[in-house]
Write a protein that binds this DNA or RNA. Sequence first.
DNA 1: CCGCCAAACATATCTGACAGGTGCGAGCAA
DNA 2: TTGCTCGCACCTGTCAGATATGTTTGGCGG
Lengths: 253, 253
Amino acid sequence: MARSEADRGEYPLTAAERVANELTETILGTLAPGAQIPSEADIAARFEVSRLTVREAVKMLVGRGLLHIGRGRRAIVREPDSSVFAALLVAIVRNDPKGLFDLIELRMAMESLSSGLAAKRASRAGVQAIDAAMRDMRKSAAEAADGANPEAEARFHESDLQFHEAVAMASGNRVIAFIFEAMAKPLRESFVMSRRGQTLRGAGRSETLEAHQAVLDAIRTGNQRAAVDAMRAHLKSTELDIRSHLASGVAAA
Amino acid sequence: MARSEADRGEYPLTAAERVANELTETILGTLAPGAQIPSEADIAARFEVSRLTVREAVKMLVGRGLLHIGRGRRAIVREPDSSVFAALLVAIVRNDPKGLFDLIELRMAMESLSSGLAAKRASRAGVQAIDAAMRDMRKSAAEAADGANPEAEARFHESDLQFHEAVAMASGNRVIAFIFEAMAKPLRESFVMSRRGQTLRGAGRSETLEAHQAVLDAIRTGNQRAAVDAMRAHLKSTELDIRSHLASGVAAA
DNA sequence: CCGCCAAACATATCTGACAGGTGCGAGCAA
DNA sequence: TTGCTCGCACCTGTCAGATATGTTTGGCGG
């Protein structure tokens, strides 16, 4: 079976699509992020279409995350924005009952990978970022430990996520970091939904801290295998928690 | 006070963005793929904006791949389209000198993963698809072997890619399959660019066939570890080829 | 040289209009 | 009655022109 997009090829492209395609070529081919594209009027003149058509084409590229527009100034080329991919992931996850599990499955595999890569080639700044997240975790864990403190609890989870994102960044692989960043949104979304009222037990927190510290140590010392193993072990232990959270969330919904 | 571009969120959303956001919510929340959205006029009335504004909002969603529009009929909700993500990957790869290597790095990790998952839970149809690609490979390999036959050569590489895509599909993980599909475009693009005039040695072809067969066998028999190992070994052996191709391609460019 | 302001520029949005593709139902033919 | 065709209502594609408002810049006064 051929591509499903083939059904659009039967019809001639609309003017807006034509302009959008050519603009995309121009942008990807010759324009660096931060550069300005010509004004709507100029583009309209060049393609011999109305300004409205140009606006629609530009809006499509904005939807793709290739351009950023602000009132009064010309559109500027944008670095690929993970939020667009995040929207796609949200759509996939919502369309498929087990989409969230698929997402988590991939996420875990990518975590092990990025952890190992980070151990192999993390920069000083990269390690520092991970370390900073680690310190934040410890701090909010301490504050959350001595009593019911939902705010510190939330900050704990936030810095937890930041730890993992910092590891992904430190992998030095921009594609991984990009995908990782995008995955955060649907995951966060479903967690707040499924974690309503629930809190991690204190024991879970200290275990989590230890596990993260092990990952950090391995990365800092450049021990690739240890980094992979530490991350894998950490994920394994949290997997059950996550799944039970999700299961209860789904059941409640 | 210099306003950095980081604070664009502080500006009030434009009408078109507002409509686009609300439409996105509606679509993701209550509309299944294939469903029609209201007509432009209806949406315009509901949000109290002009039809033009609605059109721009819709065009943004089209750019995101959430909608498909055809002249004369209302826009229909679309299943997430990997080509949008593919465009993002192309942008990343082109912006970053080592972007292509990052992409390959991730791709290889995901191949091992999907191979193992396919062994664990591939459906009969999934295995059949892999098998079909395998047969195509053999056929075009045979035709390419007895002389210079660029066409068969091309078909060989095509079915090679299809083999890997079939494995990704067979993993049963839609997120993986989605990302995988998107990666194919930038990879193919750079390969044709870097492979100009080069051809794989015949020995490489028969080795490739064997390696693929090993993966297929492992998946068919449900041997997860063997599937991962076979795929990893295959990738390891092709990694050098790819890198040298890329290196020569970059050097030539 | 610095700071302020108006004009030029650019985007945001609206109104109104017309062309052309789609789909459904009414009416006609077998 | 059944089936087919044709026309009309609906919908999107595109244009022109107009107003509102934000951004940039060049010139002018201090």
